[in-house]
Structures are given as structure tokens and as C-alpha cells.
């Protein structure tokens, strides 16, 4: 028996909006730790890993580990039927072939339930080692989204370069080129407005901009985004969900040959 009651139901809605265009079908895994997902896009260039810890739920019952295959676009459609302040409860029976979503309005005057059929999905689970990254940049998520959107009007790739001077985002295309530099800035009124750069070594990596732009759909989940970069590794773009969990995107870089 699975029963998960999420008072801040809009979190689940925002998570689905953030991943539904990147991944078509995926398995949601439920265990004592929490509600999680790891899935790659069809070309194996990008991966999303998300976790809502069991503590994020007002009620969390998961009698045994369960993996539920769902079409994410359909799941997003179901979640769009919930109100912005609704409490969302997920329910599934052991050995069942469906997942029920229950939406309760905050004053309990409307209760809706939607049942979705589960799918069998063969998915490759990647082992992602814990790594010390050469550079970690924390910055306002809205600023990062703005930069990616602006650069995508100029080119198809984004070079992210971290030096002592700051973090530089660059692109070039048929009409020309663009460079945007953000310097460390901790003298802000609100901590979420800070830009913090921790650098062990300078690093430059180049990525396909359309993937990074897709990751920024997670912006409503967090005021800050963290970029973790090392020369020979995929970048990690992480949005922390308060004390409740995270959504991380991994993106393979362009490789010089």
C-alpha cells in the first residue's frame, strides 16, 4: 500500500512541468527515503534526478519499495487539474496497475480523484559517483534563466567558463556572439539574490543550449540554482526544493576530438 499526502501539492505540479518535455516515460520510485525519479532523455545526453524526501509529506506510507512507470506528459495533464493550493494525495495498491491522484481544495469543499494506468518501462539507471567539482556557482535561478533565454536568441551552444573573475556565459551564431559575465556578489539584502562562486580550478565547458533552457523550467521550484562543473564531467544544474528535496539535471558536454 502506498499513500503519500503532500500539503504543498503545487510542488509536484511544478516538478512535472520541469521534466515533461525532457523525458517521455519514466519510473517513479517510492521507498522509505522518499519519492524519486531518475530518467534520461531519449538521446542519453541529459538526465534528470529528483527527490521529494519522505519528510516533505504530511503522511507518508510506503509499505515496500515500489516503482511506478508513468507517461510524464499525461501525468502533467492530470496534475494541471489540481488547484494552486490543493493538497495532493497519491495512492496505489500493492500489485495494482494504477496510481490514484486525489486533489483536495484547502477548505475541503472540492475533492477530485484521477486514476492513471501504470506502464512497464525499461529504464537504465546510471551510477553517478559523488565527485568534488572544480567549480560551483550559486546564483539566482531567475537570472540564470534570463541569461539562457537571451543567449538562445543568438546561438545554439553555451560555453560556461568559471575563473577568478566570475562566471562567463558565451554563445556565437550567424548574427554574432554574446558574452555575459556574472561576478560574485554577496552584498545583497536577501540571500537568494547572492551569486557565490567557489573555484578550485578554472573550468570551461560547452553545452547544447536547448537542454539548459529546458532545465530552467524548474525555476519556479527554487530562488537559487547551483551549477557544478568539472573539465571532464557532465554539468549538474540543481534546484533545491527548500528542505524537502531537489531536482538535478545532468548534461553531457560537447567533446573536442
Amino acid at each position: 500500500m502506498l499513500e503519500l499526502r503532500l500539503v504543498q501539492g503545487s510542488l509536484l505540479k511544478k516538478l512535472l512541468e520541469a521534466i515533461k518535455d525532457l523525458v517521455t516515460d519514466a519510473n517513479f520510485d517510492c521507498s522509505a527515503t522518499g519519492f524519486s525519479l531518475q530518467a534520461m532523455d531519449s538521446s542519453h545526453v541529459a538526465l534528470v534526478s529528483l527527490l521529494l524526501r519522505s519528510e516533505a509529506f504530511e503522511h507518508y506510507r510506503c509499505d515496500r519499495n515500489i516503482s511506478m512507470g508513468l507517461n510524464l506528459s499525461n501525468m502533467a495533464k492530470v496534475l494541471r487539474c489540481s488547484g494552486p493550493d490543493d493538497i495532493i494525495t497519491l495512492k496505489a495498491d500493492d500489485g495494482g496497475d494504477s496510481l490514484t491522484f486525489m486533489f483536495e481544495s484547502p477548505n475541503q469543499d472540492k475533492i477530485a480523484d484521477f486514476e492513471m494506468k501504470l506502464m512497464d518501462i525499461d529504464s537504465e539507471h546510471l551510477g553517478i559517483p559523488d565527485t568534488e567539482y572544480q567549480a560551483i556557482v550559486r546564483m539566482p535561478s531567475a537570472e540564470f534563466a534570463r541569461i539562457c533565454k537571451d543567449l538562445s536568441g543568438i546561438g545554439d551552444t553555451i560555453a560556461i567558463s568559471v575563473t577568478k573573475e566570475g562566471v562567463k556565459f558565451s554563445t556565437r551564431g550567424d548574427i554574432g556572439s554574446a558574452n555575459i559575465v556574472c561576478r560574485q556578489n554577496t552584498s545583497v539584502d536577501k540571500p537568494e539574490d547572492a551569486t557565490i562562486i567557489e573555484m578550485e580550478e578554472p573550468v570551461t565547458l560547452t553545452f547544447a543550449l536547448r537542454y539548459i533552457n529546458s532545465f530552467t523550467k524548474a525555476t519556479p521550484l527554487s530562488n537559487q540554482v547551483t551549477l557544478s562543473l568539472s573539465s571532464d564531467l557532465p554539468v549538474v544544474v540543481e534546484y533545491k526544493i527548500a528542505e524537502m528535496g531537489y531536482i538535478r539535471f545532468y548534461l553531457a558536454p560537447k567533446i573536442d576530438e
Partner: peptide, 14 residues
Amino acid sequence: DPRQGTLLDFFGVS
């Protein structure tokens, strides 16, 4: 031009 890497170039399937 550099080629687009895949995650399988970096991470193993567990």
C-alpha cells in the same frame, strides 16, 4: 566541430 557527448561516455549503467 566538437561532438555532443552522451552520459554513457561518463557514467556507467548500475
